[in-house]
Design a protein around this nucleic acid. Structure first.
Lengths: 196, 196, 196, 196
DNA sequence: AATGAATGAGTCTTCATTCAT
DNA sequence: GATGAATGAAGACTCATTCAT
């Protein structure tokens, strides 16, 4: 169904996705296709040749990112220290969004079937990571994979409100949140974990 | 500078702000002025009589909210248990945004001088709250008022990604984050706290 | 539901409909809203304030025309000579389209419920006109209202292909077609009349 | 001027013209080159190798059709019954357009010199057919070849407005119009016949 | 010679903002 | 003071046409 792209088309596709990610990061979802095209150094029409719709473009970005995370997570399932593994996973997730928070894109591609499927797949991976960590006592008992799925983007979000801050300020907030996930000194949680 | 409004104008202003908050909560920043006006039951032109600009309207909402928070925080400075006080403050902040995350509005009114001034004032209040809690050993040593300013919106943000969840799911994530702020089992933080 | 328009808005609406009719007549359905607006001397946005959609604009034009025809037809039902009445009706119909054929608009607004309703109403009027004429022997036996509904636009269509011709050249072709509708020298028709 | 095409090129040209005719018939003049190419099973670029311009493609289709008509007409000049011959000619013309009205294409290729030339040639043929029929008293005195040139497409046009109708409904309207062309019961015509 | 990727002008439509009533 | 009509800039998207492969 998806035949290999011509060399130049593949290059354009890459340029386009990169430019779009940058532009969305800087301007949010309202970034215009025209600006993205200009940034990628290609024509407006070319954007639509690659992605029939702005939503499709967004979905493609999200897909890219989610797939990388799945792979990362699956690798980390084999690490010795399950607590470290989970922390590492969250770090990779945050690093991905380092430029600026792109998590809102996730919401934007809600309708997209493929995105939903891959997100479910990511959820499974996270469930496994959290399960192991919980079993080994690396994270508190009452925390679930869904919780982590939701918390995943928080460090970038928090750091994003500090304008001139170093780009990896998120590490500070990931550390705080992760301390909140440890069993030591955990207070009971209101509300059960949600289901998605 | 601000002369008293005529009674009906004051009423309209209140209706307008409420409608705008609702509409922004439901639709995000792209909520249209026309829809807000309709929701408030007033004419589009009247919106602009009250706020010269969409940005000004947003700023007014933010201002309202920030002012409430300042007042809340100032009150809580006199509470006995400084840890409880800080937690309560964060709860009030989250409750305010309960309907849906409105924190993005904060970003949108970045340029507004008045907002900046009031935010600085809020920062001071939070600094004081955190200072007391730190002094009493209720929160870890290495956490600052700025950190809390930034973390303040995280619980809503996190909960916001769970679609059908109960409206106060944020409580769960506030509890986790707050546990991460406690001295027990705290691991040292990378990066110093940022300055705004 | 439809409250009276403000004086200037009503004027603009009239200008707009006239300009749109002209522009569609000259350029066909592809006439651009921008050109129509320019021709009407109003802003592009104003077009959309009056008609939410290009299709709605087209429907409004068709509606206008069809309603006039219904009224004309209903009047003519009371004329003495039913043959003359039918001919007169067709003349008015053609005159309406004199500038250039606008009948294609009819097709374009197919989906519009109101247009459909009014067209059905027009059909009834034509049925009545034809029925009387047939009863009085002014038109041949085997011709129906539906036939006339369909034939109605033909004179303009035919004349439209003669570039520099006088604007009411349609009269010539209406005369020919009308002679074909008379009982004298009528040959039997293949195919029964269609139903719409 | 027109050198012989390579075998495959000739085949492509034929496929292309057929696909274009179908597509125009179904979608009207706005049929896109991309769709036509897809339908023909060839690349978009190939369309432009054959016809430099969309207009040229349209002109080619019109040319094809007009040439067939000329040939048909010339044959029919030798038929015994000149009235039957004329009716037959009109029937062939209508049959050609049976799928859906393609007469609009005629208008679209107005500027094309070759089309104009061939249309003039067709006009002559029709003049001759009508001349004979008039001389033999098969059609009324006051009708000219130009009239018939113009009336030629009317039957399809009329039938085209009846959605679910049988494809050769045009026969009914051709019969009516042709009855209008007969000498019996003819009323004098307003306007002289136009000249093209 | 064929292909389909790239292009940008042009289309409809939305919306903050201004202004006449 | 309130209203909503008017405006035009800006956005997503389409498509004939050009050009590298």
């Amino acid at each position: 169904m998806t035949r290999p792209l011509r060399a130049d088309a593949a290059r354009n596709r890459r340029l386009l996705l990169a430019a779009a990610a940058d532009e969305f990061a800087e301007r949010g979802l309202d970034a215009s296709i025209a600006d993205i095209a200009r940034r990628a150094g290609i024509g407006k029409g070319t954007v639509f040749r690659h992605f029939a719709t702005k939503e499709d473009l967004i979905a493609a970005i999200v897909l890219d990112r989610v797939e990388v995370l799945i792979e990362t997570g699956d690798h980390l399932l084999e690490a010795e220290d399950s607590g470290e593994a989970l922390l590492e996973f969250l770090s990779v997730a945050a690093e991905q969004r380092q430029q600026r928070d792109l998590s809102f894109l996730q919401g934007a591609s809600g309708g997209n079937a493929e995105v939903s499927r891959v997100q479910a797949r990511l959820q499974e991976t996270i469930d496994a990571l959290v399960g192991r960590a919980r079993d080994q006592g690396a994270v508190r008992d009452d925390v679930t994979g869904t919780d982590l799925f939701l918390l995943m983007c928080a460090p970038n979000y928090v750091a994003g409100y500090a304008p001139g801050a170093p780009p990896d300020l998120w590490r500070r907030y990931l550390a705080i949140i992760f301390d909140g996930l440890r069993p030591q000194g955990a207070h009971p949680l209101p509300h059960p974990a949600p289901r998605l």
